[in-house]
Computed example of a mutant assay.
Amino acid sequence: MTNATPHAPHRTLAAPDGFDNWLTAFRDQVEGRLTAALDHQLVDTPPRLARALRHTTLDGGKRFRPALVFLGSLIGRPWPETDESRFDSLWPAAIAVELVHVYSLVHDDLPSMDDDDLRRGRPTLHRAFDEATAILAGDALQSLAFTTLAEAQADTATRLDWTRRLAAAIGPAGMVGGQAIDLALAGQVGEDGAPDLARLADLHDRKTGALIRASLVMGARWAGLPERQLRLVDDFGRLLGRAFQIQDDILDVTGSAEDLGKTPGKDAATDKCSYVTVAGLDGARRELDDTVRHAHAVLWELATLGADGQALSACLDFVTRRRY
């Protein structure tokens, strides 16, 4: 894939106007890279499936997880980064992460899972096409993600590390396991045996946090961060993922369909276990504040080891104040 993807203009990591503007510019570049990746990999794909893959992958989303791959590579370096050409070999990891994320959304929206009709401001894939096509598209996106890593112009050790981390993050001990727990706990809010916050944190550390965590570490590992710092980045990624989910749960109550691009109020309507349904809105906000404090403590520890966490701090701030 890498050889078929054109070089992006060298503004990928520049952020003179702050994190939000950087993420917006980065999102445009992800769009171009994803389009090139699909053009390369869908040549022999049946037309209807190819249309479904383009429909669900392109023109939407925050592109937050591929951004984390690049942010992970900047730990210990000044931010914004100015020498950007050396980051070209990191793009396959970022694209693979986004393809996996899109697959997770497609399957999460299915009638047998969360049964949602709206995603990224458009009909979910099983509504726009049909349920069978959505299942197949999700399967295909997983395959495309790992093909992208296999074709990456990186050394063998890096490609193996990326593959192992991504597979573990989305497997039975990670995202898929979290989804299984989520389904098993549905309807238990307010009942005997309902999950407490510790069990809820474990659920979402798997379902949402594992991929966020892996994205950061994949970038940091590529950049050659020392093992001690890598462990701290992994810990920060866990807390960042948890903060992301808590904010998601808060926005499910306080946000609008226009801002969110998906149906608000779904958690309460379907008796799902969220930070709000378990702890209440004020309790969820307290949990978010506590998670952010712990995350900043990890950044402080990174700083004592000489690693610049400016980019991660800006990212954490974005996560906690976002409205979509």
Rank of each mutant, 00 (worst) to 15 (best):
H107M: 02
S112F: 14
L105C: 04
F129A: 02
A145I: 09
E98V: 03
L149N: 04
L144I: 07
R119V: 09
D114Q: 11
L144P: 06
E131R: 04
T124A: 12
A150L: 09
L144E: 06
D116W: 06
L144G: 06
S143Q: 15
R127M: 05
H107P: 00
L99R: 09
T147K: 15
L105K: 01
Y103C: 09
A134Y: 01
L118H: 12
E98H: 05
L144T: 03
V102L: 07
D115S: 05
L125E: 03
L110M: 10
V97T: 06
G121H: 11
T148Y: 12
T147Q: 14
F146M: 13
R127H: 06
A137T: 10
V97E: 05
L99E: 07
A134W: 00
D139K: 13
S112I: 15
D115A: 08
L136E: 08
S104T: 08
M113S: 12
A134K: 00
E98A: 03
F146R: 13
F129C: 01
V100C: 04
H126W: 08
A140V: 12
T148G: 12
L118D: 07
R119Q: 08
A134G: 02
D139E: 15
T124K: 05
I95R: 05
V106M: 01
T124Y: 06
F146G: 10
P123K: 00
L125W: 04
L99D: 05
V106S: 01
R127S: 06
A137L: 07
Q142E: 15
A140T: 14
R122T: 07
H101L: 07
I95P: 02
H126E: 01
V97P: 01
A96M: 03
A140R: 14
T148H: 10
I135L: 10
D116V: 10
V97C: 04
L136S: 08
V100D: 01
G138S: 10
P111T: 11
A140W: 12
L118C: 09
G121M: 12
T148S: 14
T147V: 15
E131T: 05
R120M: 11
D130N: 06
V97N: 04
R119C: 10
I135R: 00
D109Q: 04
D115H: 06
D139N: 14
S143Y: 15
A145Y: 08
P123R: 00
G138E: 07
A128S: 11
A140I: 09
L118I: 13
Y103M: 13
L144W: 04
Y103G: 05
I135C: 01
H126N: 02
L99P: 05
L149T: 05
V97F: 02
T124L: 06
L141I: 14
L149H: 05
